[in-house]
Write a protein that binds this DNA or RNA. Sequence first.
DNA 1: CCGTATCCTCTCGGATACTG
DNA 2: CAGTATCCGAGAGGATACGG
Lengths: 111, 111
Amino acid sequence: MSKSKIQVDENGKLKCCLENTLSIIGGKWKLVILWHLGVEGIHRYNELRRLMPGITHKMLSQKLKELESNGLVHREQYNEVPPRVEYSLTEKGYSVMPILEAMHKWGNDNW
Amino acid sequence: MSKSKIQVDENGKLKCCLENTLSIIGGKWKLVILWHLGVEGIHRYNELRRLMPGITHKMLSQKLKELESNGLVHREQYNEVPPRVEYSLTEKGYSVMPILEAMHKWGNDNW
DNA sequence: CCGTATCCTCTCGGATACTG
DNA sequence: CAGTATCCGAGAGGATACGG
């Protein structure tokens, strides 16, 4: 097994990339949310809740807001009664799919 | 942007893959440790400490032990004076490199 | 040199109730 | 339906001191 192609640009540079990335898509729920939106497309708020039985109201809205402010998720609100809000991935959101695929593959290979 | 190739096998199956993967390589330090060992090869304990200025004694030894018990890291102890311990990646450890590369690339592209 | 043991802080995430 | 507010507990992570 040869060494990786990854090279460090300067002192600590790559480490910072990893930490920056983790700060945006880390935690218990963000990758799962991104996966649902990436694989299945647009979802309403309560659809996402049903798809993630373990998540709480607070976590879902909080993580969606964080993902939106980081430009990974787009929030479309329709002023109807009852209210309707649809979430989808942005271009930047889709760009994390390779990470998701790599993790999914690794999870499959090691279980 | 078309949908991802990821497909869900059954109800919640892929989500579990992600969560299992996260449980092993998640957290603040594990990916950084794997990166150093994967890119630079074998390292002694104190070398790793110097490469990760922020990490504490407790975290480094704790995370190394977890990575070892999960079969990602190999620990080789030499009974000399002073003691010497070398850490390296196992085959399974190297198998997480695609995830690391994907995250590194994403971090670079988005900064 | 390479750790472990304690103790402590602080953030993440959960439960529950309330609002437009 | 789609959230926000408040409170709370557990556990991750840090500082420091001690041991083999």
